[in-house]
Design a protein around this nucleic acid. Structure first.
Length: 756
DNA sequence: AGTCCTCTTCTTTTT
DNA sequence: GAAGAGGACT
């Protein structure tokens, strides 16, 4: 291993790299050189004589896979190219393309992304007349996805509860539709691969024989199906190296099961375990803060990060009046860093819990005198933009004529006079014939059905268009085909004739699409339309992180995993924002939020800024939130408060005052006629308005009053306004007063005193 | 059939 | 505050 210098590794890292054979668990704390261990290990295995083509390394994101591939190539040279390095989804797609026929999947199958899945669920629900008002399609889909992640196919799915029984009706129909469209969804890529390996045991054995070494990155994020896949593929040689950090498990909502890493030793009795605790990234101060946050979780392997670096600068705590001054603070601080320390912008990053928070920050960065260059990573995926999806739908239909979803998307896009009435006839025809929508459209256009001549001619014209394009698809490279689609469909012309402000942006996006098609053709060995569509479907929204662009990076905490920056700002540290409101009443979800906070904090190398806003405009409403517990968990000695900014922070909400206009349900509900449609029923909302700065709250006074609104549903009346008082003394008591709004002349009000 | 407007709903995180 | 659905109007 010529270029692998073991001397640069610390003892446990070296142990992990040199571990010979058998299962290996590497518990890698944040910033402990995890990627290095993986790449060095690959290099060592290869230099030890193993054919790189017999090494598989699996990651979760395309970004991580790309980095791994690149760094492996640096160490082993071009031979690394033949190694199987990719995301679970990409590797499964590859296996299914090669061998999927055995389970009835044509090699040209399509990959449906989240949007496609949702559309499909809506269709199925309409088909079996499930009211969307009652059953939210996204939740139905969520349940289906969860089942898939747990390895439960449509046949094995049992509802178990009221909602589950509804899902049990949708799931099989949904799966049938997928099959009919020759499509596989994200979960299906994994589940069907598992199905394939279980059914085709010869194939499974051959693959297990082939892959001498299997490495899995971010093992804490594996779900049950992924775990099984790994188990099967590594079953022959048992050289399974899993790397992960239970404290950084932040994808349980996607089916990740933290138990996979916590129980690895139980499942592999002879597993070697290496723990990497030395951190090479952050200052001790930052690590202390991170430890203080994560220490409150119960489900974790105890470990303690340490660093040889000194304590470094204190963490800046910035309480702000509202989200705008919070954003202004961030912009101000970055500008100052730039001015006083000459810090490059790309050394700074701002993390938030949800994408919705990025807007204010962008505005604030743009508003500064010399505007601060910035990049927002993630958000709307490129391939999710409407115009891109439209053109892709044409391409998909050409690649796969049974893709009904694609047909429906473009049959009247651009408008060509084919409306809902015609569409209904087509789907009726498709149902009668048991054919695809495109075939049914052809039948309607040529047959003597009850379609009147006008629509029929329009439909015929559309069919001719598709025929013409399919003929071209046989000979043209994908990029030329896309151009032809734009030209012949009239899509390009329509876009050109629409010079709206974002019309230009959309035209640009289409050019970029053509560009990415060309890039794909240049870089791929055997470019094909299905190949490109696969790449597009599997592309994530944060695949390329432009760190070299000299710009401040704005992203969600989820997007930040695996990255590091010299200066990190975490904004919106408020109860209800981060931790997210939906996690507040579930201890397990709260633990995940905590891990998320841990991930955020450990991204910082030198300086960390923790911000929160007292008031925030959210849901189009002014809200008042208490500081996040993740903030208050950080020991005071690590913090330096910076409230001098803009003077707003000094303003304290008068005790007991509560802006009536902020009371959404009470104000609106009162004016709404009784018995109006029940659609307005809201999910529960809660947040707390604290009068006290959290800095002073502990011990400073024995009485603390906060106002709050609580949401509850009592028939159609909702929401209360109230106050909560902590009464000192031993034992301490809570005084809870709730106004349930006015009913006629009466105020409904309740008061409780609760011992703690 | 298409367009425009209003009303409603919903907001986590993503391969 | 945005996007989607549904309704009314052209």
């Amino acid at each position: 291993m010529s270029r692998v210098d073991l001397q640069t590794l610390n003892a446990p890292q070296r142990a992990a790299v040199l571990h010979d054979s058998g299962p290996l668990l590497v518990l890698a704390g944040a910033g402990s050189g995890k990627t290095r261990v993986i790449t060095y290990r690959i290099a060592r295995v290869v230099s030890g004589g193993v054919d790189p083509a017999r090494v598989m390394a699996v990651t979760f994101t395309n970004k991580a896979a790309g980095e791994l591939r690149q760094r492996a190539a640096q160490l082993v040279g071009q031979g690394a190219r033949t190694a199987w390095i990719g995301t679970f989804h990409a590797i499964c797609a590859r296996l299914l393309r090669q061998h999927g026929q055995a389970i009835g999947l044509p090699a040209s199958f399509q990959i449906y992304d989240g949007a496609d899945q949702r559309a499909l669920v809506v269709q199925v629900m309409r088909e079996i007349s499930l009211p969307e008002r009652l059953f939210v399609p996204a939740e139905v889909l969520g349940r289906i996805d969860r089942a898939k992640n747990e390895g439960i196919g449509p046949r094995d799915f049992r509802g178990g509860d009221f909602f589950g029984d509804v899902v049990a009706k949708v799931y099989p129909a949904y799966e049938r539709r997928l099959q009919a469209a020759n499509a596989v969804d994200f979960g299906g890529l994994l589940l069907r691969t598992l199905e394939l390996l279980r059914q085709e045991t010869t194939l499974a054995e051959a693959l297990a024989e082939r892959f001498v070494h299997l490495l899995v990155d971010e093992f804490q994020d594996t779900n049950h199906v992924q775990y099984e896949l790994v188990r099967l593929l590594s079953g022959r040689h048992r050289n399974l190296c899993v790397v992960g950090d239970d404290d950084q498990s932040i994808y349980s909502w996607r089916g990740a099961d933290i138990r996979n890493i916590l129980d690895f030793e139980r499942d592999h009795a002879d597993a070697a375990v290496v723990t990497l605790e030395q951190n090479y990234r952050s200052t001790q101060t930052i690590l202390d803060a991170a430890s203080a946050i994560i220490a409150r979780n119960s489900e974790r392997r105890p470990k303690r990060l340490f660093t040889a670096a000194g304590p470094g600068a204190p963490i800046i705590y910035a309480p702000c009046e509202d989200e705008r001054s919070e954003a202004a603070f961030v912009a101000h601080a970055i500008a100052r860093l730039r001015q006083e320390e000459g810090l490059p912008y790309d050394q700074c990053a701002v993390f938030y819990r949800t994408h919705a928070q990025s807007r204010v920050l962008e505005e604030a960065l743009r508003a500064r005198r010399p505007a601060i260059p910035h990049v927002v990573v993630g958000g709307v995926r490129f391939y999710d933009r409407a115009e891109i999806k439209d053109v892709l739908a044409y391409l998909r239909l050409l690649a796969n004529p049974t893709d009904d979803l694609a047909l429906q998307r473009i049959i009247n896009e651009p408008p060509r006079g084919i409306g809902s009435a015609t569409l209904a006839k087509i789907s009726e025809q498709a149902r009668l014939d048991g054919s695809s929508a495109l075939a049914a459209a052809r039948a309607c256009a040529t047959g003597t059905g009850e379609l009147s001549s006008g629509p029929r001619a329009k439909l015929a014209a559309f069919c001719t268009l598709i025929d013409e394009l399919s003929a071209a698809a046989a000979t043209l490279p994908p990029s030329a085909l896309a151009e032809l689609v734009l030209e012949r469909s009239g899509y390009g012309a329509r876009l050109a004739s629409d010079p709206g402000p974002d019309g230009e942006a959309r035209a640009e996006n289409l050019l970029e699409l053509i560009g990415s098609l060309r890039a794909y053709e240049a870089q791929s060995e055997a470019p094909s339309l299905p190949g490109f569509l696969e790449q597009a479907a599997l592309a994530g929204d944060l695949d390329e992180t432009p760190e070299e662009h000299g710009a401040v990076t704005l992203m969600t905490v989820h997007g930040a995993k695996g990255l590091e920056f010299a200066h990190v700002f975490i904004v919106g540290l408020e109860r209800g924002v981060f931790p997210h409101a939906r996690s507040l009443d579930d201890p397990q979800q709260l633990e995940e939020e905590r891990r998320l906070a841990y991930v955020a904090v450990t991204r910082a190398r030198q300086r960390l800024y923790l911000c929160h806003a007292r008031r925030r405009w959210l849901f189009g409403q002014q809200q008042v939130n208490a500081p996040s517990e993740f903030l208050t968990d950080v020991p005071r000695r690590l913090l330096q408060t910076e409230s001098a900014f803009s003077g707003h922070a000094a303003a304290v909400t008068p005790r007991g005052a509560f802006d009536r206009s902020g009371v959404r349900g009470a104000a609106r509900g009162a004016t709404r006629p009784a018995g109006a449609r029940g659609g307005g029923d809201q999910a529960e909302e809660r947040w707390v308005d604290s009068d006290e700065d959290f800095d002073q709250s502990a011990g400073a006074s024995d009485e603390l009053t906060t106002n709050f609104r609580i949401g509850m549903r009592v028939r159609h009346a909702k929401f209360g306004v109230g106050s909560i008082r902590m009464i000192g003394g031993t034992p301490p008591h809570l005084n809870l007063t709730i106004h349930f709004g006015e009913v006629g002349p009466r105020t409904i009000r309740s008061e409780f005193v609760l011992p703690l």
